[in-house]
């Protein structure tokens, strides 16, 4: 058996004139927590749909757990969490799980056991008989995730599973995913939140305009960032005039002013000079991160893209 859980080779997909995926290739090792980071419209959902078998690529092929993927044929060992909360509002949490479990081929005692296990895992055992309609957004997201866990997946594909979720539920989902990863489940996680990718993922691919711009661990990607550490000053208000520091390049964007030293030794000097400035809301040292890498690779900021 291959050590790879997912292999994507030269996959392209066009929608009219738009290249949603442009010769995308990537490999996800078994047991990896793989993040696919990119702004909205980068091609994340298209790639996810190709990986689910919902969409046939124009070219290239996909293998999941050593099997070629056929359209509409999702391997049993793959769980998929769609971006939409795809649940039946008028049914209870248990009824939803029961329906999807049966469609996945689970029956009888095994189905009951799995439903109980999943409800416990997602923290909804006490609301099992409640209609989904009355759930909070976070509860629905957890149940949405729970459906994908019914068949004990070895590979879990999650398409932006925390969209519109409150911080508490987000933390709960993160814990759950980390726990699953700890049990050996391979996870592919798409997100446009850099913080999520940085916190959760062992391997991260940056996707933009249908192309993979870089793949590696967080540390490997950070080494690709050319911008050194710098000091960021956040002004109290627009009316504040930021201080110009001799020999230090500065760049303002709204309330934000970035001071980039010529050498790393210059950081302390900048901080000293800014200590007397009273118009600052906050002063911080910014280390190279994925946001910077994205900016360098695309010329745009991740959050604005």
């Amino acid at each position: 058996m291959s050590a790879n859980a997912v292999e994507v080779r030269n996959v392209s997909k066009r929608f009219g004139e738009v290249h949603a995926l442009n010769e995308v290739s990537l490999t996800i090792k078994q047991g990896d927590f793989f993040g696919l980071l990119g702004p909205n419209g980068a091609g994340k959902t298209t790639l996810m749909r190709v990986l689910c078998g919902l969409l046939a690529p124009d070219q290239g092929d996909v293998r999941i757990l050593d099997s070629s993927l056929e359209r509409w044929q999702i391997p049993f060992a793959v769980g998929v969490v769609p971006q939409d909360i795809a649940l039946y509002d008028m049914l209870s949490a248990r009824k939803n799980l029961e329906l999807f479990g049966k469609l996945r081929g689970l029956t009888g005692k095994k189905l009951e056991t799995r439903i109980d296990f999943v409800l416990d895992l997602i923290g909804l055992s006490d609301r099992a008989k409640s209609r989904v309609k009355g759930f909070s957004g976070g509860m629905k997201r957890r149940l949405n995730l729970g459906v994908a866990l019914l068949a004990e997946p070895r590979v879990l594909l999650l398409d932006e599973p925390t969209v519109g979720v409150d911080p508490q539920s987000r933390a709960s989902i993160f814990e759950l995913l980390e726990s699953l990863h700890g049990q050996g489940v391979t996870i592919l996680y798409t997100t446009h939140y850099m913080e999520e990718a940085e916190r959760l993922c062992r391997t991260i691919a940056i996707l933009d305009h249908g192309k993979i711009l870089g793949v590696g661990s967080l540390e490997e990607l950070i080494t690709m960032v050319k911008t050194p550490r710098f000091v960021r000053l956040i002004l109290r208000s627009d009316s504040e005039k930021f201080p110009a520091l001799a020999g230090v390049a500065s760049k303002q964007s709204g309330l934000r002013v970035d001071y980039v030293p010529t050498s790393q030794d210059g950081l302390a000097e900048i901080l000293t000079q800014l200590a007397d400035f009273h118009g600052a809301q906050r002063v911080e040292v910014v280390s190279p991160n994925l946001e910077m890498l994205f900016l360098e690779l695309t010329g745009r900021e991740l959050r604005d893209a």
């Binding site: 919902l54 509409w72 999702i74 971006q83 795809a86 459906v147």
Partner: peptide, 15 residues
């Protein structure tokens, strides 16, 4: 519209 049709496909049902 709610995505449940897609989910049904993902869970193994055919169109």
């Amino acid at each position: 519209h709610t995505g449940t049709a897609t989910r049904l496909l993902l869970m193994g049902a055919t169109s």
